[in-house]
Design a protein around this nucleic acid. Structure first.
Length: 726
DNA sequence: CGAAAGGCTCTTTTT
DNA sequence: GAGCCTTTCG
């Protein structure tokens, strides 16, 4: 094997610079993935380093799996000793092994986002606040921010300055208590506890430091401070740290990823070797230039010179449709046209959007025309009710103190344990400082206790509770001798879940989902019982969205722009190119967030190899209401010579093809019935009330500048749907 | 005391 | 349009 064949000089340098810190800034399509895999292959094959001494961190499990497959081809099976995975997965493994030193019980379960929200909601209530006044999501986000900056509740409260932060601090403290009681960790804990473990236990740290001679981190622009600290700690012995990233593709700041990590890296490691990968092998010149124009408008950015030897290609198509339905129809009919021409097949095409809600209109159009598509819904499989139910049962077997899972399973199938009973049980458990499981145990087994200490349950309820407890205890008793699949089957059998789910709505489909989960469990049947169960549960919780994405299926990909990072397609449609959607309205008042929206757009366009369509609709249904939107500001950053606003993409008339207009031409010329003058009060459906600041007749239309509350907008009279207020 | 039906709010992106 | 919460009915 020649590890270097077909690497260009900077790629080769990135692969060969194995002594000391390396920062690789890799533009889109610059062969970043190849560099990383070849670097590992180089270390193992040519430098003779045992994969046991290498850690490679990827952004998704899917990326890890792909790297493993490629390395298997390049290096062979010895690669199984490589430490490979996401930060979260790697930390979970470390904590299962060594977490005791920071009071983490090795049987901990991991709470996903929705578990986290429900626990925080309980935290808000039990701290004496009102979850309606303090939105759990907002508190969750603040707590996550604190953890991402490694602040424990005490430290957080020392730094808090507002009343809201005071509330967050109190909830945070109590939330940690709840996590502890239920022996569970949230995503942020996995990272933070691992850092704490290393900081407080030099011996443990030293063991890991000695093990990892080489560290690699992909998607470094999307790491947060804790992750940075983790790498810094792990790498401080050998200092062979290689990080790869692209600041222009940083799109996770809302998850507290911090671009400053790249700056910190060069500061913390002054001897860093910097490698720039600037040759793009993916896209046409037109596409690359269009993307560059869009990203160049960002202020907070180092400019770089991306170039390609690829063909010039076609201009990017900018398309306006009348509604979102027409938008979806355009995407479908255009794909069918390309397929009919024999130029592409369905699997070459992807439709990308800013928000998940946008997938609906697309899906409907694909279904209606029978065009095959695949919707990337990795995590949503695991968010399904039936899946969460079964996972909750299995979590309970690993960790019966897990209150979330206990209350999720206690009345599913319905046993007659309603909210009242659950609240009583929960309250009593809390009052005696026990988990609900322990409380049930006391209830069932200790007749010696004072009767007043126990809550009163009528005989029927008592019996049901005892039966439930007995079922859980029985399964736990047998769990040590059952592999993951056997345990899975036992849970289904003893809980009566099959009959329950089959008798309900969409029973067959839901049962199929349960069986699909079972096939995942089969992957772990060869491990010993406790190890297998833990690994299975970690996997289903730490699953990332794109993990279930299968590129080999010959169908059109429907995907969010965030999920699309790291993928590539010959043909890319970006839909919803409108103000308020891309850029999203929530970024309007924050320039930094606006720049991130722009990067998101950049990520989308640079996924394309040959064709890009930027599509926007004149009106769109948002929350039931039909709204009129303006074309995205990003469209105006593309020089007109690089866009085709009509023509080339629809040489043949297709019966499906909707009427298409260019966004910068008049769409639906309407007679102007309204005369406005400076100073008039007007109403706009999106921006509210405002005052006309200027009025400029243009052809048959007029440009009106209106000062709305907080924003000054330039509008075209015929499209703005302004109402004159008297 | 539990299950089903209607009214309310809020809509970004996700390990 | 959906999920969550509250109310109402059995």
């Amino acid at each position: 094997m020649d590890v270097f064949a077909s690497l260009n000089p900077p790629q080769r340098e990135a692969v060969e610079s194995i002594d000391g810190p390396v920062l690789i800034l890799a533009g889109p399509g610059s062969g970043k993935t190849r560099v990383i895999t070849h670097r590992v292959a180089y270390l193992v094959k040519l430098c003779g380093i045992n994969p046991y001494h290498i850690m490679a961190v990827t952004f998704t499990n899917k990326a890890a799996r792909e790297m493993e497959e490629r390395l298997n081809l390049l290096v062979g099976s010895s690669i199984k000793d490589l430490t490979l995975g996401t930060f979260h997965a790697i930390c979970a493994r470390i904590l299962r092994r060594d977490g005791e030193a920071v009071a983490v019980d090795s049987r901990f379960v991991i709470n996903d986002r929705s578990d986290q929200i429900s626990l925080i909601k309980r935290g808000i209530q039990e701290t004496g606040f009102d979850p309606k006044q303090y939105v759990p999501e907002a508190i969750a986000s603040a707590i996550s921010a604190a953890k991402s900056h490694m602040l424990d509740p005490m430290e957080y409260r020392e730094t808090s300055h507002s009343y809201f932060e005071e509330v967050v601090g109190r909830v945070y403290e109590h939330y940690q208590q709840l996590l502890k009681e239920s022996n569970s960790l949230d995503f942020d804990d996995l990272l933070m506890k691992t850092v704490q473990l290393f900081r407080k236990n030099p011996k443990v740290l030293s063991r890991y430091q000695s093990r990892y001679w080489h560290l690699l981190v992909d998607e470094f622009q999307d790491t947060n401070i804790v992750q940075y600290e983790l790498i810094k700690l792990l790498g401080s012995k050998y200092r062979n740290i290689c990080v790869v990233g692209d600041p222009d593709q940083s799109i996770y700041s809302w998850r507290f990823a911090d671009l400053r990590n790249i700056l910190s890296f060069e500061k913390d490691y002054p001897d860093t070797k910097l490698v720039l990968l600037e040759e793009n092998y993916r896209s046409t010149k037109m596409i690359l230039e269009t993307a560059s124009h869009i990203i160049s408008a960002n202020q907070q950015r180092k400019s770089k010179d991306l170039w390609t030897n690829n063909d010039t290609g076609e201009p990017v198509a900018v398309v306006e449709t009348y509604t979102e339905q027409e938008e979806a129809q355009f995407v479908v009919s255009e794909i069918e046209r390309l397929v009919d021409l024999g130029e592409y097949n369905h699997g070459d095409c992807a439709a990308m959007y800013r928000t998940n809600a946008q997938s609906r209109a697309l899906e409907e159009a694909f279904l209606r025309y029978g065009t095959p598509y695949k919707l990337v819904v990795g995590t949503r499989f695991y968010e399904r009710r039936e899946i969460k139910d079964i996972v909750a049962y299995l979590r309970l077997m690993q960790n019966p103190d897990d209150a979330i899972s206990l209350f999720r399973t206690i009345n599913v199938p319905q046993r007659g344990i309603g909210q009242q009973t659950q609240a009583k049980l929960s309250g009593w458990a809390k009052s005696i400082n026990a988990s609900p499981y322990q409380a049930l145990h006391l209830l069932a087994n200790s007749e010696t206790k004072e009767p007043t200490e126990k809550p009163y349950f009528n005989s029927r309820t008592s019996r049901i509770l005892t039966d439930y407890l007995k079922m859980v205890e029985d399964i736990i008793a047998r769990s040590s001798e059952l592999n993951t699949v056997e345990l899975f089957d036992l849970v289904i059998e003893r809980s009566g879940y099959k009959e329950y789910i089959l008798s309900g709505q969409d029973g067959e489909e839901r049962w199929d989902n349960v069986m699909e989960l079972r096939t995942v469990a089969q992957d772990y049947h060869y491990l010993n019982p406790s190890e297998g169960l833990a690994a299975f549960l970690d996997r289903v919780t730490l699953i990332s969205d794109v993990d279930g994405y299968d590129e080999s299926i010959p169908a059109v990909t429907l995907i969010t722009l965030h999920q699309a990072k790291g993928l590539e397609f010959p043909v890319v449609f970006i839909v919803g190119m409108e103000e308020g959607l891309l850029p999203h309205i929530r970024s309007f008042d924050d320039p930094a967030q606006m720049e991130e929206e722009r990067r998101l757009c950049y990520v989308g366009i640079t996924r394309a190899k040959e064709k890009v369509y930027l599509v926007h609709a004149f009106r769109r249904n948002l929350m039931g209401r039909s709204m009129v939107g303006q074309p995205s500001r990003f469209l105006s950053d593309i020089p007109s010579y690089q866009t085709a606003t009509s023509g080339w993409w629809q040489e043949e008339e297709s019966p499906l093809t909707p009427s298409i207009h260019s966004w910068n031409k008049v769409l639906v010329p309407q007679p102007i019935e309204m005369e406005l003058k400076v100073g008039d009060h007007v109403h706009h459906s999106q921006f509210g009330d405002g005052i006309v600041v200027s009025y400029q007749p243009v052809n048959n239309d007029a440009e009106v500048v209106v000062a709305f509350n907080g924003a000054v907008k330039k509008l075209l009279l015929s499209f703005a749907c302004l109402e004159k207020l008297e």
